[in-house]
Write a protein that binds this DNA or RNA. Sequence first.
DNA 1: AAGTTTTGTTAATGAAATGTTAATCGGCAG
DNA 2: CTGCCGATTAACATTTCATTAACAAAACTT
Lengths: 235, 235
Amino acid sequence: MDFSGEHIFLVEDDQTLNFIIRDNLEQNGYKVTAVDDGQKAIDGFEKDKFSICILDVMLPKKDGFTVAREIRKKDDHVPVIFLTAKSMTEDRINGLSIGGDDYITKPFSMEELLLRIKVFLKRSQKPDNADGPPVVRKIGAYNFYFENLILEHGDKRKTLTYKEAELLKYFCENPNKILSRSEILMNVWGSDDYYLGRSLDVFISRLRRYLKDDPDIKILNLHGIGFRFNTRLGK
Amino acid sequence: MDFSGEHIFLVEDDQTLNFIIRDNLEQNGYKVTAVDDGQKAIDGFEKDKFSICILDVMLPKKDGFTVAREIRKKDDHVPVIFLTAKSMTEDRINGLSIGGDDYITKPFSMEELLLRIKVFLKRSQKPDNADGPPVVRKIGAYNFYFENLILEHGDKRKTLTYKEAELLKYFCENPNKILSRSEILMNVWGSDDYYLGRSLDVFISRLRRYLKDDPDIKILNLHGIGFRFNTRLGK
DNA sequence: AAGTTTTGTTAATGAAATGTTAATCGGCAG
DNA sequence: CTGCCGATTAACATTTCATTAACAAAACTT
């Protein structure tokens, strides 16, 4: 797979689940270090460098939050995804999503977790692809430099936010094809709920505004289904 | 993807019925988790991920509505089919159909329930057949791209709604063959009553309009029986 | 032929989805 | 701490679409 260098730290006490997740991650080309309790987690985190951590919240010895705090002491940046039980109260869950961390409720499908991981890793990639020549995507009369977050039309340039650019890139990769809302949300946001859906609408509205100078480019809505990015992409 | 991976959550307190439904669903390749009271339902829903829930309305401990509300708290998306007694007042039943849920009145045939489930699951599948080449159905002079909801004639393109496309697909799958009204309704709508029948007529009328440019295509009515989709389908 | 049921068609309805702009909230740089 | 930025959430407007209604036409019944 594409992220083949990435190293994932997994902390899950349920042996079966631990194995399944680990196996799946490895199938997908990640390097995985897996432990099964909070103390081993804290010790283990010292020994290596990880791109992302997946922590069960319920753990023997030290719970996931404690582990996370320890991890934060050593590394401010590494993203943490908590595995939470569905029964967790909402306010505790809310506490998680602040601080750049995220959570996923059990049970979840492996596909969900993989997408979530992908979205996180993408975010921590270098925003500019440093070395190579800048990649330009031609969208009708526009030039889109994803790495530089620039959308160019004639001599007018607009700097996009990271998420705007992510969404536009996703559309560029799937032109003239119906994308369901949930597909877009899972691939760009990493998860899917009602409010993220409304957020998507806000972004769509903004992209349409940015792209309105070329009448051939259309982000078409298919009611109750999703969107289709109608365009001719230059080579 | 076929339905073999789909996991159904069944909540029914009548032991016999519980068994019958469960058995039938399993015969049809679904994975089933079945419980027999409201409390077990709420607990059980936590532990797994389901594609669809079937809830008896009359349950010991907590009734079906309460269970449904709990389920909604954990998962916005999963479709719920209620099993209701015939004696229920209409307004309570009406309450069900809002919110994307559906109901089926007891007694019902297993066939009915299976169709209903199929229709629901179909809806939640990805609307695009992943990355393969788009499937084109040739209907006389038309090209019909179900996955993209496009009906094409020469250079004229019409974007269909999801249900229009569903119905047209069903006709394409059964060309030159008598289809009873109830057969169509059960397969496309998932249920069959007087008003849905009128709805079908509205859709038929619309499809005829869309297809009127090729005189060889006819949606023929057989009075009191159903319809026949007369056409030559291209390869 | 008159009456009845079924079907065809168009319009009205109402719920849900989407579009849009503004308010909010947290993170972060200064 | 303060002010800015960007994403989310809220609030409200608008659109879409399946259903229902309403009425016309056709097909059967008697």
